[in-house]
């Protein structure tokens, strides 16, 4: 359903974030992407919906090649890919309902979206989704009044109301406590199963990944080091992904480097 062919991304600074990545994901598969920060996980996810433009290579979503699309065509294809962010990325000064409905922006014209007159079926769907994640009562609250876990649920609703075929999930649990992290991961995986969605979940908590997904891909220095079932993730394999050293120590070291990793080129350019 999604196929990456020889995907390469080199930033202007010369950092090669992705080195010729090939990957294929069938319909309905939930895949966890693991690897140290700076390995290119975030870049890969952002290349798929072209928040970051890949340097070369091809991305096939079903029968469409994404890298050569015009801006209008890209917008239509982005509707089919829901994205969930690490820091929730809700528009904090809008209400929960507006945040959920903003997932329909690709389907409505500017004026309708500006006056908040969404079609009734979108509104009903938004209510259904909010009910599904248990936030129906919060619909008219402002997003910045919510707790972290609640915000992430709203983020999930926003991605799902796009009616996507694929979910791109970028570190969904990095800002959450362990219990909420599990709840959110469970929710994402349940929803994917209910709707038959494929998903790429970029995650650095290996234990959490093993708990929920059918397939794990390990990325290191922009290249795929491991691709297989979670049970096959032995400490030896983790050592190859996270480096020669004791890999638990590497994770900690990597957390410090999180800020300067070229995952947000737009911010770095400022």
């Amino acid at each position: 359903m999604l196929r990456l062919e020889k995907l390469v991304k080199t930033y202007k600074t010369g950092d090669q974030a992705l080195k010729s990545v090939d990957l294929e994901i069938p319909q309905g598969q939930v895949l966890a992407l693991i690897g140290p920060s700076g390995a290119g996980k975030s870049t890969m996810i952002r290349c798929i919906n072209r928040l970051v433009d890949p340097t070369s290579g091809q991305i096939w979503l079903e029968d469409t090649e994404l890298t050569s699309l015009s801006s209008g065509g890209l917008r239509r294809k982005r509707r089919e890919m829901g994205m969930i962010f690490q820091e929730y990325a809700l528009v904090e000064r809008l209400t929960v309902m507006e945040n959920v409905l903003s997932g329909r922006l690709g389907y409505v014209g500017f004026w309708r979206s500006f006056t908040r007159r969404y079609p009734q079926e979108s509104v009903d769907e938004a209510f259904r989704l909010l009910d599904r994640v248990g936030l129906l009562a919060m619909a008219d609250k402002r997003a910045d009044e919510l707790s972290g876990g609640q915000r992430q649920r709203v983020g999930i609703c926003r991605a799902l109301i796009q009616n996507p075929k694929l979910l791109l999930v970028d570190e969904p649990t990095a800002s959450l406590d362990p219990k909420t992290s599990r709840q959110i991961m469970r929710l994402i995986c349940e929803l994917c199963e209910e709707r038959g969605l494929a998903a790429i979940i970029n995650i650095h908590d290996v234990a959490l990944a093993k708990m929920f997904v059918q397939r794990v891909v390990g990325l290191r220095f922009g290249a795929i080091e491991f691709d297989g079932r979670p049970e096959a993730l032995t400490p030896d394999v983790l050592t190859t992904i996270y480096g020669e050293e004791d890999w638990e120590a590497t994770i900690e070291k990597v957390d410090d480097e999180d800020d300067d990793a070229p995952t947000h080129p737009e911010v770095a350019a400022l």
């Binding site: 294809k77 994205m83 962010f85 990325a89 389907y107 983020g155 926003r158 796009q162």
Partner: peptide, 12 residues
């Protein structure tokens, strides 16, 4: 910037 990115990702 991430809020802007999130809206862009919906195909807006």
């Amino acid at each position: 910037h991430t809020q802007v990115e999130a809206i862009t990702a919906t195909g807006a």
